[in-house]
Amino acid sequence: MNLIGVIMGSDSDYKVMEDALKILRQFEVGFEVKISSAHRTLERTLDWVKAFENQGGKLIIAGAGLAAHLPGVIAGSTTLPVIGVPMNSGPLNGVDALYAIVQMPPGIPVATVGIGAARNAALLAVQILATENSVLRTKIKDYRAKMAADIAAKDEALQKKLSEG
């Protein structure tokens, strides 16, 4: 079953959003991916959200650049949690997208990660699912333990290099 929907406004967003897909695969969380625009294909977008919700989807990650209305439009059309990923695009390098996603009106929240931070969006999605899934909770703990071990190993290598040198 596809628990997470990943949607982006343009195929140019795929390179960034691919980081989210890698994490979801790593954690073995089912997902589906869609390209659809809040402006150019509004009805198609809303139809997809309803279909995803009706098939049992739990959460949506939405990447968008420039005006970045996609995450907000989706959040306004569903009660599923939405995580917005602002894209680094346009003359403001994603700051406009960040503001558009993070500044939602009261009552329609969108969780927002940093500009281009699709990996963190997927990790947040997995953590949300892990609140009711002990297998995912264990995988998150293991993932973090590995990150800590990697940092310790890098520090050990650096200390060895400095002492030799």
Rank of each mutant, 00 (worst) to 15 (best):
N2G: 00
I7N: 09
M8W: 06
G9A: 13
D13F: 07
K15N: 04
E18C: 10
E18R: 15
A20N: 11
L21H: 07
L21Y: 00
L24K: 00
R25G: 09
R25I: 02
F27V: 04
F27Y: 01
F31V: 00
E32M: 00
K34T: 08
S36K: 01
S36E: 09
A38D: 10
A38S: 11
H39K: 04
H39V: 01
H39Y: 05
H39L: 04
R40E: 06
L46Y: 02
D47V: 03
D47A: 14
K50H: 12
A51N: 14
E53K: 15
G56L: 12
L59C: 11
A62Y: 06
A62M: 14
G63A: 14
L66Y: 15
A67L: 08
A67C: 11
A67R: 13
A68F: 03
A68G: 10
L70K: 06
L70Q: 02
G76V: 08
P81K: 03
V82Y: 10
I83L: 08
I83W: 03
V85N: 08
P86S: 05
M87K: 07
N88P: 00
N88T: 07
G90N: 12
L92V: 13
V95Q: 12
D96M: 04
A97Y: 11
Y99F: 15
I101F: 02
P106M: 12
P106G: 13
P106Q: 13
P106V: 11
I108E: 01
P109Q: 07
P109C: 06
V110Q: 04
V110T: 09
G114T: 07
G116W: 09
G116F: 05
A117T: 03
A118H: 05
A121N: 02
V126N: 08
Q127F: 03
Q127I: 02
I128E: 04
A130H: 02
S134L: 12
V135N: 13
V135G: 01
V135H: 07
T138A: 15
T138R: 15
K139P: 05
K141D: 14
D142W: 00
Y143P: 12
A152K: 15
A152E: 15
K154P: 01
E156C: 05
Q159H: 14
K161D: 08
K161E: 14
E164Q: 13
G165C: 07
